[in-house]
């Protein structure tokens, strides 16, 4: 089946990001496709390029990137929720006159319409929330 995940919670604040990652790996191991992980609300913090957790804790940002590289999963971040919270890719940083940027591929900033699209197109959408 084609799955999508909606993640609404910040990493390291709530368990949700860990739960979502665990669920993602398991559904892939069961032979399903994970088309997209969509990050919305505080979930956009999962895309923070500069996140530097202690070495003995799971590195969620890296784990999402690895998942995307290995399985072709799109990592889509709601642009309106991200900009408000200081999460800008190189292009948005330049557009807003900011030095440095905080989001990089494979995370991509995208519109909320994508969430509706994947939610209606995929066989299953599973939400993980704070």
């Amino acid at each position: 089946m084609r799955y999508a995940i909606l993640l609404l919670a910040a990493p390291y604040t709530n368990q949700a990001s860990h739960s979502a990652l665990r669920f993602a790996r398991t559904l892939l191991a069961r032979g399903h496709q994970l088309e997209t992980v969509f990050f919305y609300q505080e979930g956009v913090q999962n895309a923070a390029r500069l996140a530097s957790p202690p070495q003995d804790e799971p590195h969620l940002v890296d784990a999402w990137s690895a998942l995307s590289r290995e399985h072709g999963t799109a990592l889509q971040v709601c642009i309106a929720a991200a900009l408000r919270r200081g999460l800008l890719d190189e292009r948005e940083a330049a557009r807003h006159g900011k030095q440095g940027y905080s989001v990089e591929p494979p995370f991509e900033l995208t519109g909320l319409g994508q969430l509706i699209d994947i939610g209606l197109r995929c066989d299953r959408l599973i939400t993980f929330a704070p």
Binding site: L112, G113, L115, I116
Partner: peptide, 8 residues
């Protein structure tokens, strides 16, 4: 989310 869906 509701508004975006309706706009589509």
């Amino acid at each position: 989310t509701a508004l975006v869906a309706a706009a589509f």
